[in-house]
Computed example of a mutant assay.
Amino acid sequence: MIADDDEFDPPLPPRRLLLRRKRVLIPLGLLLAILVAFLALRTGDTDRDEMIAKYGGRDAAFAAGPAGQRIHYRDQGKRDGPAIVLLHGSNSSLHTWEPLVRRLGGTYRIVTLDLPGHGLTGGTPDKDYGAAGMMAAVDVVAAKTGLDHFILGGNSMGGWVGWRYALAQPERVDALVLLDAAGMPLRMGEKAPPSNIGFRILEYRFGRWLATQITPRALVEESLRGSVERQTIVDDAMIDRYWELLRFPGNREATVLRARMDREPAMAARVGEIEAPTLILFGDKDRLINPTAAKSFNERIAGSEVVLLPGIGHLPMEEAPDATAAAIADFLTRRLAPTPAGPETR
């Protein structure tokens, strides 16, 4: 009878046995620590109904779209006044326009909306968070509110959607207002702006995955503070709004999908086709988009006007609402004034 070879293996010395156990236990311990930390830091989505009650109120309005969209919007201001449709920036919401609604609503009818993947609109079934999906949302809300033409304004990403819309449907855009709008290439010899920590994280694959799982309130606050020059506007209510709506169902996934999508930079070559009266308003301390982009827009859009607000960052409508509203009102009054009737028609 032949014995098993194991019967003749000498037992391992205690020191070697301890080393072997360490090789197994240390990696397992690290993995366990990482898992515990991940579970402790992980932030889930906010509750849909709770957020609608908190940030939409009892009169929250939604427009249903053909692709299953459910677009949150507000229709405020002077009902029979000229209509302005306003589009917010990336990871923001229609709430960013409330300071302008309070200042311009006595003269204008102001329609604001949460673009797909933002605010109380949340993720959309078609997951189209590019220019086409955003412009489709504008059409859905315009149809719901009975607008066939309007003044169109947008901040940052919303400005990019705005000038894309003016190219796609020029007959509907009476005037265009671009506030720190995205979409212009860097000028010769120019460096990219410093941006904020939230957008820098999205530049990396692991960062994009992490952004769908862990969204610390402190990170949202730091990103907000990195976007504005007037720090006094960043209070607890503003931080909570951005933090909670970013975690509205579907919004974090949409953020990651937008970070990977093709922004079609070649479209910037067509911006000169815009014929609508255009106001270009930038904060001269913008750290997300170089303020020189205002000059690029102005050079390319014939007849456009530029206003640079000193000491203001990326969100002029919140950082300097009085100056922003005054500039918009002055521009629209001058550029959209009715043509005096001739003697034969008086």
Rank of each mutant, 00 (worst) to 15 (best):
R187Q: 15
G226V: 07
R200T: 10
A175I: 03
S156Y: 01
A182K: 04
R164K: 11
R287K: 13
A132M: 06
E299L: 02
A293D: 14
A269Q: 11
D80C: 01
H95T: 06
T339S: 13
A293E: 06
L245F: 03
V306S: 05
R16W: 01
E273T: 10
I201R: 07
S92T: 10
W243N: 03
P82Q: 15
E190M: 08
V256Y: 10
E299H: 02
A64N: 11
L202H: 03
A327L: 10
N91Y: 05
P99Y: 08
I2P: 09
H72L: 02
I34R: 07
R103G: 09
G89M: 05
L224S: 01
R20C: 10
T339N: 09
V161S: 00
A266R: 09
T145K: 02
L104N: 10
T121W: 06
F248Q: 03
V24D: 09
P343A: 11
D4G: 04
G89T: 10
L281Q: 04
A327D: 14
G189N: 02
S90K: 12
R20F: 12
M51G: 05
A132Q: 14
D262M: 11
E190F: 00
L41M: 14
P340N: 05
T124G: 08
L19E: 14
G207T: 09
F38N: 12
A266T: 04
T124M: 02
R334D: 10
S296C: 02
A168L: 01
P14A: 10
I233W: 05
A182F: 01
Y242A: 06
P343T: 03
M188Y: 13
P10Y: 10
G130L: 08
G119E: 02
W243T: 01
I233N: 00
L12W: 08
F199T: 14
G226Y: 00
P265K: 13
V36R: 10
L18P: 13
A325K: 02
A37W: 06
A276C: 07
V140I: 15
R241V: 05
D4I: 02
R16G: 11
R334Q: 12
V306I: 12
R200M: 11
Q76M: 14
A259P: 04
A276T: 08
D114A: 13
I274N: 06
A341D: 12
A211L: 02
D45A: 15
E50H: 11
V140N: 09
R23Q: 06
T107F: 09
R225Y: 12
R103I: 05
H314G: 07
D174Y: 00
S223I: 04
E222F: 00
L245N: 03
M267P: 02
R241H: 09
R217H: 12
E305N: 03
D45C: 11
G105F: 01
L288C: 07
P340R: 13
A83D: 04
S90H: 15
F331S: 06
F150L: 06
R70Y: 11
G272S: 13
S92V: 08
L32V: 07
P265Y: 04
D236A: 15
R16I: 13
P116H: 06
T96M: 07
T212D: 06
V161F: 03
K54H: 14
K191E: 15
F297L: 13
T292R: 14
L17E: 14
L30C: 09
D4C: 04
L31P: 01
